[in-house]
Design a binder for these strands. Structure first.
Lengths: 197, 197
DNA sequence: TGAATCATGTAAACAGTTACATGATTGG
DNA sequence: CCAATCATGTAACTGTTTACATGATTCA
């Protein structure tokens, strides 16, 4: 399911030419401000990277396409101590397209792409300690993510707080719930794996 | 990241020519018995489909490739009331390749592909009720999955039970933990969305 | 009669990746 | 001096998908 036309599980929306996921992701970020390709590739790493991380070259490929479609405008910014850069801004039609993409709910359930679980599923082909190693690595990753998310959370403001950023906080909370579930599962699974000798 | 060369987050393993995820998935299933392409496409839907579901045409494309590599053998089975079929069986080199793939842990963290979360993240571009609709749909899906998984669980046997299938049960438990986390998150998020008017 | 199931494949498109190329500036 | 950062892109590849094609049999 490496997702190709795939859109990774994105079905045909009602609109004839819906955005690709990467286009939507970039447009969404441009909805928050004016960015260069380089800015975006930084932003992706620390922002939406948890659930969508296009390659740098993919970002640069998408930007002129958005301009061509009228969804964004480009502006050259001359810099003294740095190479000149192109900064992009979303247009009204772009906002409309983005809204259309958001509203077109994904018909498909969930990512349905998880090679890690595939490895566990076929774990009988190896020794329990190999599977344990994978599960432990997963647990460590989850714990790191949880620590990071807990750090970031205060910046998004609690519910009711003045400068509350609800939607981004929702996603952050999803991450917390998810990774906490991973840790619980990993602990239970590791215990059972130990019993398997 | 629609996964293309992508291998969706599968890095280069140590082995020069590692299996693709679909090859590994099919080989893994062949490790459990002898199947035709048609059998496999059924099996995928109900079995590993939760985390890997190649297109039917992809399955048929992979099978001869596995034979060519010496990882599987094909045998024609004549049928009276049904078209003849080719059934495939894993070979010893195939088992080795599969084990190699399982042991080559995925260097990348997690699926990092979730258009649903992307929609939530940019939810400020729409109205709260649109986002609520998406979240509710997600919650319903999760509840259906939970019900299904609970039905399937007894068949895999509890820990200690004689006919216990531990690895498949681990994956099933992962699903339960995951979807229960989704439900909790959805409830909390829906409550907050209602406060947003 | 016709829809569903069994059974297998081909052809074309595609979204996104990796690898590579280039070059100036900053900072240790 | 050299590594890292800023900054942008091209070329080639690829794993997988969608759409299509074919045909027999079962069952309502």
């Amino acid at each position: 399911m490496d997702h190709t036309k795939q859109q990774h599980g994105e079905g045909q929306g009602p609109t004839p030419d819906l955005l690709t996921t990467t286009e939507a992701a970039i447009l969404g970020l441009l909805g928050l401000g004016e960015f260069s390709g380089y800015d975006l590739s930084r932003n992706v790493e620390t922002g939406i990277g948890m659930f969508w991380s296009p390659a740098q070259s993919g970002i640069y490929a998408v930007l002129p396409r958005l301009v061509e479609k009228g969804y964004a405008t480009a502006r050259t910014v001359a810099q003294e101590r740095r190479p000149d850069k192109q900064v992009y801004r979303i247009t009204d039609p772009g906002r409309e397209a983005l809204r259309g993409w958001i509203e077109s709910g994904p018909p498909e359930p969930d990512p349905a792409y998880n090679p890690f679980l595939l490895r566990v599923y076929f774990g009988a082909e190896t020794t329990p300690d190999v599977v344990s190693g994978h599960v432990e690595a997963r647990k460590r990753e989850a714990e790191e993510r949880i620590a990071l998310l807990r750090e970031l959370k205060p910046a998004l403001g609690g519910s009711g707080t003045p400068a509350s950023e609800p939607y981004r906080r929702f996603v952050l909370d999803w991450g917390l719930q998810y990774y906490e579930a991973v840790v619980r599962w990993a602990d239970a699974t590791l215990a059972e794996l130990r019993e398997l000798d």
